[in-house]
């Protein structure tokens, strides 16, 4: 277990005790929480909601920038959108095969919808950029 802050044995509350806490600990409390003053007396110079939204954006963009290329689930074809692409591609291939087996003439390729079969990448040959 990690104790950020003081030893539990001391249990002196507050003060500089939780200073070692990481920025996330602090921001999720001082920005998202705490009593929000609202109401008829407009004492805030700021629209606090706008402020909070803006802060969220700052944090989100920071997170995004740092997360690129790191979050494995976003790059795993089986968990991300490309899995669906592969599935659709497979289905299209199967349909074409079925059509061929039924002795039909090869349907004309509709632009943008299907591509010649030899250009399809079957899942077996999909490269896994993640290693393992």
């Amino acid at each position: 277990m990690t104790m950020s802050g003081r030893e539990p044995a001391g249990m002196q509350p507050y003060g500089s005790g939780h200073q070692p806490a990481n920025l996330g600990d602090i921001l999720e409390r001082v920005l998202d929480k705490g009593l929000v003053i609202a109401g008829d007396i407009q004492i805030n110079l700021l629209d606090i909601e706008l402020l909070t939204i803006k802060l969220r954006l700052v944090i989100a963009s920071l997170e995004t920038a740092k997360a690129v290329g790191i979050d494995w689930w976003e790059h795993d074809p089986w968990l991300s959108g490309s899995a669906r692409d592969l599935e659709l591609e497979n289905r299209a291939l199967r349909d074409r095969l079925a059509a061929l087996d039924a002795g039909e003439t090869m349907p004309a390729v509709e632009s943008g919808r299907q591509q010649p079969a030899q250009q399809h990448t079957a899942p077996e040959t999909t490269e896994d950029d993640r290693g393992g």
Partner: peptide
């Protein structure tokens, strides 16, 4: 699971709920 305990904090998360 690795549990991380932080605190004690001032009660940031338990004072503004109803109001906001």
């Amino acid at each position: 699971l690795r549990l991380e305990l932080t605190g004690p904090w001032p009660p940031y998360s338990f004072t503004g709920i109803e109001r906001d």
